[in-house]
Design a protein around this nucleic acid. Structure first.
Length: 883
RNA sequence: GGGAGCAUAGCUCAGUUGGUUUAGAGCAUCUGCCUUACAAGCAGAGGGUCCGCGGUUCGAACCCGUGUGCUCCCA
């Protein structure tokens, strides 16, 4: 077969993904093996996968493939999230832009039809991306948070929590999104520092007896447009300046309403003028003070953020437009004392990015305290391990200990409709369906034939996704079924740290409440993907590349390599396409190593004719060395992967393949030009390559499978080839290998520095006490340094290049003219280093306290260091004087 | 305002209960090579005040204190 010069990923990737699918390798059914389960964090059906998803999915695929090859029954459940508010906003926008349809002109059913069409389209785009990336998900288990059974599960859980008293309905101060016109949870509000203005406004004191004109107080406010909702002004009880106002009223400007002056410790004397206006409808602190002093609530805003009838003035104007007009009017009437710049934090809706409005509203809430306790315990006790641990344990604990009730109702259509039914008087019942609701209602209120109306609102999207690890196995709707009993709890959750509260903590709560068991054993947080300048990837910056474009350009394996090699565990990742290029080069390296072996295969010698005798060829040592090196690295990689240090594991494998296998091993066994390779040596090389491909497979599945099959005829596939147990490595052989490499490098360096061409033949004279140790490696040494003679413990008769490796002196005799100054320079440098080193060691050893206190093995080590250094210094000094 | 994390080569990061050398890797840089798998390559090399200061210890990149800078979370 004709092999291309370089690796071409496109067709190879498609071919193998199809093959794996046909073979049903991704499919998982409960059996006698141990399960290894991952549920995908379901991407929102709002758009396409970005680089953050790519990192997450790659990590999960690496873990799942590794488990599958290690004897586990690996199951990775794919799916997507309906993402209530985010998707509804997109659909509304799309309808307006593309079809000229206003949501208000549609019925609920009509709108949902469009929304499902949207979900179908974007869901499929996402699934296609997951496939192209090579993810080995079980496609028979695709789940969506609005699937019929899933919908039922959410309703069932709502009803159950309501019956347990953990869900209630009530009027509370919530965060309101005036653009989406819905309530939000506290977590859906993001705070940003902004520069605002502080307005100092005169409030006249209502004092009938005096000449009122000069008698006023000044109040500083950021939100003059809410003054119409003022119900009091408040000062600190210890503030001398305002003692005379006790029991008096002031007049709210523009609407001339009298409100009382009250006193409370809450007010900071030093902020602004020391007096606050109290506007309970539009500020949580004011609301609490209002409750304390039994003040009325006047909501001066409509749902869309315009001024309401209650405002009396500027009715129907947007809140920010009204602010400008009110400021203007205050100024004209001389009621504005001054304005100043002021830095404050404002809450923005996570989805629509408009300023969230604190609002008193009747909504549904989940009581969190009781649910939080067991979820806290699971992590605190270590039953759930979070990686990286030190960063997130504290955050998790703090949130759960201070958790507030969760507002779960949303004034939207896209989502699970709240299963509550109301009569005309506002009395309601909660039930799984309308029939049940009627029954309960009739029983509760002893009536019949009352027309009940279902709550129009839907549930927060996280109220469905917190059931994800349970309901993808139908654990809510069909408790104790075969799947949930086998796959739950799942093994590891891989997700972004930004949703630790939204999702991770709540999944643990739901797991403890409905399964009495944690939903996963490990949580692995990936960092955020940023561009190489450290900026977040975002649409507006245009710095987020398209996944399919990248796969097209570099191949899926290279994309996976590139993103993993630069993803240190738990840290943010600076995405740079050059790392994908590195991945592409790595593909090519693998490809060419394979080509080299195929070349040898054609001309190889039949078994027995070769020079595998230890005294003759270096092949025996090469094989022995690489076998042990392989074992050493396999052990390292096992440890790294169990600690989720995937980036380091990949680096380790990369270096084993590129440096140890390609640069050293293959060169050591490479037959002389025109000669054939021995069959046994060839077979060993192929077998090593198999192991390397297997180790690399979870990271780069396509090219490894392809090369595995090109190397020789197979009856199996690499994807499901099981790892053999790891063997211990022989340290002595590894040491000898290192020595060999050091000598080769030193000789090459010496030749390079003395302008001796690499190809030029030389004679090597080695001064050593350990001639025997060269027995197995001398053939390789000669070949790799282009030497034609190797002589021990003799001095060459002519001027030679000299170099020192360890405590062995090496003369390199060549025909080239030798400039000794270069060698002298290098040797002098080495000598300086060693002498400095020796001083440091001597200092330690001559320190009585060190000898007294340090562990014996440490002292022994220092003595050995001293001895080694002294020997080396002696050799270098001799060499220098000979020059 | 409260809390957490980080600071090591030009860049991105390792450095595993303080002692395997006077700190390692990849990328980038420099030098020499179109050598019969691979120039998307090969062979080499250079590059560090381990953020500053103080302390503990026989011994500190590592532990403690403090300052500075950056990032994130919460109010």
């Amino acid at each position: 077969m004709e092999l291309s010069k370089n690796y071409i990923p496109g067709t190879v990737e498609e071919k193998w993904y199809k093959h794996w699918m046909v073979q049903n390798y991704f499919k998982s059914e409960p059996d006698e093996r141990l399960p290894f389960t991952i549920v995908i964090p379901p991407p929102n059906v709002t758009g396409v996968l970005h680089m953050g998803h790519t990192l997450n999915e790659t990590v999960q695929d690496i873990l799942i493939r590794k488990a599958r090859m290690s004897g586990f029954n690996a199951c990775w459940v794919p799916g997507s999230d309906h993402a209530s508010i985010a998707t509804e906003a997109k659909v509304v926008d799309m309808l307006k832009r593309e079809k000229g349809i206003d949501k208000n002109d549609l019925s609920r059913e009509e709108f949902l039809k469009y929304a499902f069409e949207w979900k179908e389209k974007y869901g499929n785009i996402i699934y296609n991306q997951i496939e192209r990336l090579g993810c080995s998900v079980d496609w028979d288990r695709v789940s969506f948070t609005m699937d019929d059974h899933y919908y039922k599960a959410v309703i069932k859980v709502f009803v159950d929590l309501y019956k347990k008293g953990l869900i209630y309905r009530g009027a509370r101060m919530i965060n309101w999104d005036p653009a989406a016109k819905t309530a939000l949870s506290d977590e859906e509000v993001e705070y940003k520092d902004v520069t605002g203005r502080l307005y100092y406004v005169k409030y006249k004191v209502a004092d009938e007896g005096q000449a009122a004109a000069d008698n006023f107080i000044v109040i500083a406010t950021q939100r003059p447009e809410t003054i119409m909702g003022d119900v009091a002004v408040c000062a600190n009880p210890n503030d001398e300046r305002y003692q005379n106002l006790k029991g008096k009223n002031v007049i709210v400007p523009l609407i001339n309403k009298e409100v009382p002056v009250i006193f409370d410790d809450y007010v900071d004397k030093d902020f602004g003028t020391g007096v606050l206006k109290i506007t309970p409808a539009h500020d949580i602190n004011d609301f609490n003070i209002g409750l304390k002093y039994n003040l009325p609530v006047i909501d001066t805003l409509n749902e869309d953020g315009t001024l309401s009838d209650a405002a009396q003035i500027f009715i129907g104007e947007d809140r920010f437009a009204a602010r400008k007009k009110i400021v203007q009017e205050l100024r004209e009437k001389g009621l504005l004392v001054k304005e100043e710049e002021y830095t404050t934090r404002l809450g923005y809706s996570q989805r629509t990015n408009v300023v969230a409005e604190p609002k008193i509203s009747t909504q549904w809430f989940v009581k969190m305290k009781d649910l939080a306790a067991p979820a806290l315990e699971e992590v605190a006790s270590g039953k759930i391990q979070i990686y990286p641990n030190e960063k997130f344990n504290a955050t998790y604990k703090y949130w759960l200990e201070n958790v507030k009730d969760w507002c779960i109702s949303r004034q939207l259509w896209w989502g699970q409709q709240i299963p509550a039914w109301y009569d005309e008087e506002g009395r309601f019942v909660v039930a799984e369906n309308e029939n049940e609701a009627n029954e309960i209602y009739n029983k509760q209120y002893s009536t019949t034939n009352v027309q009940l109306k279902r709550d129009e609102d839907v549930l927060d999207t996280w109220f469905s996704s917190w059931l994800w690890p349970i309901e993808v196995f139908r654990g809510i709707t069909e408790p104790n079924n075969k799947d949930i009993n086998y796959y739950y709890p799942t093994s590891v959750l891989v997700t972004g740290q930004d949703i630790i509260f939204f999702w991770v903590a709540r999944m643990i709560m739901a797991g403890m409440e409905y399964m009495q068991e944690k939903p996963f054993s490990d949580v692995y947080f990936t960092g955020m993907v940023r561009d190489k300048m450290g900026r977040k990837m975002s649409k507006s910056l245009g710095n987020s590349p398209d996944l399919l474009t990248l796969i097209h350009e570099y191949g899926a394996d290279a994309v996976r390599f590139g993103i993993m090699i630069s993803a240190p565990a738990g840290n943010d990742l600076l995405f740079d396409e050059s790392s994908l290029e590195q991945g592409k080069f790595f593909n090519n390296k693998l490809w060419n190593a394979m080509k080299l072996l195929k070349m040898w295969e054609e001309g190889k010698k039949p078994n027995g004719e070769g020079t595998t005798d230890e005294t003759e060829g270096g092949e025996v040592f090469a094989i022995n060395w690489f076998e042990n090196r392989l074992n050493e690295v396999r052990n390292e990689v096992e440890i790294l992967m169990s600690q989720f240090r995937l980036s380091e594991a990949l680096k380790t494998i990369y270096s084993l393949i590129w440096d140890d296998f390609c640069s050293w091993f293959l060169e050591w066994i490479k037959p002389e030009f025109g000669t054939a390779i021995d069959q046994k040596v060839y077979d060993k090389a192929v077998s090593f390559f198999d192991h390397l491909l297997q180790m690399l497979h979870p990271f780069m599945p396509f090219i490894t499978e392809e090369i595995y099959h090109l190397l020789k005829e197979r009856n199996d596939d690499l994807m499901v080839k099981q790892f053999a147990p790891v063997q211990e490595a022989d340290v002595e052989i590894l040491k000898l290998g290192t020595k060999l490499k050091n000598i080769i490098t030193a000789v090459r360096d010496a030749k390079n520095k003395n302008n001796v061409k690499p190809k030029e033949k030389v004679s090597l004279y080695i001064e050593t006490n350990e001639v025997y140790s060269y027995h197995s490696i001398k053939k390789i040494l000669v070949k790799q340094t282009n030497a034609d003679h190797l002589i021990f413990n003799e001095t060459p008769d002519t001027t030679s290049i000299m170099t020192v490796v360890g405590n062995e002196k090496i003369y390199i005799k060549s025909d080239a003219v030798i400039d000794t100054s270069v060698q002298k320079e290098k040797l002098a440098k080495d000598l300086k280093y060693l002498k400095g080193f020796l001083i440091a060691v001597d200092k330690k050893l001559s320190n009585g306290k060190f000898v007294q206190n340090a562990k014996p093995e440490v002292i022994e080590l220092e003595r050995k260091k001293k001895q080694d250094a002294e020997t080396k210094i002696k050799v270098i000094e001799q060499t220098l004087s000979a020059l």
